[in-house]
Nucleic acid binder design. Structure first.
Length: 155
DNA sequence: GCCAACGTTGGC
DNA sequence: GCCAACGTTGGC
C-alpha cells in the first residue's frame, strides 16, 4: 500500500466537502498536469491512503486522510465543453486525463501546517517543501508517520 | 493582490 | 528541438 498527498483549494473543494458527499466519496477530477496525471493513471492504487492538503489559504495544511476506493480511470470532465476542466484535445478514445475516487477517512485532530512541515528535517524532501506545484505527490511511509504524529497529539 | 516558480505553447 | 512568451499555481 502506498501513501499520497493530494492538494486542493478548499474554496473549490475541501475535506469537509468530501465528508458530506454521498458515501463520503468523490471523484478527484480536474488534475491537468502530466506528472500528476501519470501518478493517477499508473500508480495510485485501490486501498492507498491520501493526505488531503488545503492550499492557497492563509495557513496551508494537511487537514485529513482519505482512502482510494477506485484506481485511475478517464476523467470525463475533460470532455464537457461547459465544464471548468474541459480540454478540447481529449476524446473518449484518448481521454488524456485521469482521476481516482477517494473516500473520507478522518480529519486530523490538529491540521499540520506547511510552516510546521518546513521546520522538520525529515520532511525536507517532500515535493511540498521543495515548492513544487505538483498537485498529486507520493509520500514515504516515514513522512506519513511523521505528519500523522504531528496531527494526532497524545493528550 | 503580488509575484516567483514552474509548466505549456507555438514560432522559428 | 530551442526558447521566448504566456498562463497558472500557490505561498506570502
Amino acid at each position: 500500500m502506498a501513501y499520497w498527498l493530494f492538494k486542493t483549494e478548499p474554496s473549490a473543494f475541501s475535506l469537509e466537502d468530501l465528508k458530506s458527499r454521498p458515501n463520503q466519496t468523490e471523484h478527484w477530477d480536474g488534475v491537468r498536469n502530466y506528472q500528476a496525471r501519470n501518478f493517477l493513471r499508473d500508480a495510485v492504487a485501490l486501498g492507498d491512503l491520501v493526505f488531503i492538503y488545503h492550499s492557497n489559504i492563509a495557513q496551508p495544511a494537511v487537514v485529513g486522510i482519505a482512502e482510494v476506493v477506485r484506481a485511475g480511470y478517464p476523467d470525463h470532465t475533460a470532455l464537457n465543453p461547459q465544464g471548468d476542466h474541459f480540454d478540447p484535445k481529449a476524446t473518449p478514445q484518448n481521454p488524456i486525463w485521469y482521476m481516482v475516487d477517494v473516500r473520507y477517512r478522518q480529519a486530523l485532530a490538529t491540521p499540520v501546517t506547511l510552516e510546521q512541515i518546513k521546520q522538520i528535517p525529515q520532511l525536507s524532501d517532500m515535493p511540498l517543501v521543495k515548492r513544487s506545484r505538483l498537485s498529486i505527490q507520493p509520500v514515504t511511509p516515514q513522512q506519513w508517520e511523521t505528519i500523522l504524529r504531528l496531527g494526532s497529539p497524545v493528550p
